[in-house]
Nucleic acid binder design. Structure first.
Lengths: 142, 142
DNA sequence: TGGGCCACCATGGGCGTCAATGGGAACCAG
DNA sequence: CTGGTTCCCATTGACGCCCATGGTGGCCCA
């Protein structure tokens, strides 16, 4: 499998580490990604992660917009100013920093959610809530 | 036969596994599907399964939107974050995870229902109920 | 047409492997 | 010297893979 799919919830240990699900690690390994780029989602209280190549994509995206628009401005602020590089330890765990905790509300457990070309870290309850709400909206539409 | 038809109810064993009906497995085998994409139905309390090509279809749907819009984000949350890849064991069984149980209410038995290009997992009583209701409604109309 | 044989499918369970988790100890930086 | 990391090793519980069994339906033959 070559994309990030499904979701899983893992526990944060006493040292503040959490295991990235092995399915996600497999995707990263296949893409030969050793360092992760992390940023804050534009819509939800979640932190997104992917290989550094997403930076290129974001920059193209911003470049294609009106450089003076509020949207492009905000996006650049988040991408460039709010992005962080992270790496996994030998066991495939990452350190849950305050950067992540503050924005997501994560305390002791993390829900990893696949998003196709990247994955996200959520506070478990917030993820449940958002997902069921999104489902309801879709149901209402169809 | 190249589509999923009819329904059958199988028992979940002590390890939480359930056999996929052989007629369905035959359809999968013919389509050379080894990994199943599963998602939660948008209307009923049932989990749907099919080959990975439905995921492509969903993704095209998302791709036709502004990739940074809240709408596309929400849809990806359901499709990617709410979808799971599952594979069958050597005997053609699948593991009934909490992902399935929580959404369907399944406990010890599963009703498999063919839906043409995919099939669904139902809690047996819920399936009965839904079917008889659908039948009544049709009768009332004609 | 009835009986029996056989194949296949649903089900049960053993066992090895690997992922998730926990914790010790070395290492670095302030 | 001290707090925070990083690297390594241990544990355990879940899952994948494999083989066994039994029941049922279909098929063949008398």
């Amino acid at each position: 499998m070559n994309r990030f799919l499904s979701n899983a919830t893992n526990r944060i240990d006493a040292k503040g580490r959490v295991s990235v699900p092995s399915t996600f690690r497999a995707v990263l390994a296949q893409a030969a990604v050793s360092e992760l780029y992390a940023w804050q989602d534009f819509v939800f209280p979640a932190v997104s992660m992917a290989g550094p190549e997403v930076l290129d994509r974001f920059e193209r995206m911003i470049g294609s917009q009106d450089p003076f628009s509020a949207e492009a401005n905000k996006m650049s602020l988040l991408i460039h100013g709010g992005g962080v590089f992270m790496k996994l330890d030998g066991e495939g765990r990452l350190l849950v920093t305050d950067f992540i905790r503050d924005f997501t509300g994560i305390t002791d457990r993390v829900t990893f959610a696949g998003r196709g070309d990247h994955f996200q870290l959520w506070e478990p309850a917030a993820f449940e809530e958002m997902q069921s709400r999104a489902r309801k909206e879709r149901t209402a539409i169809s």
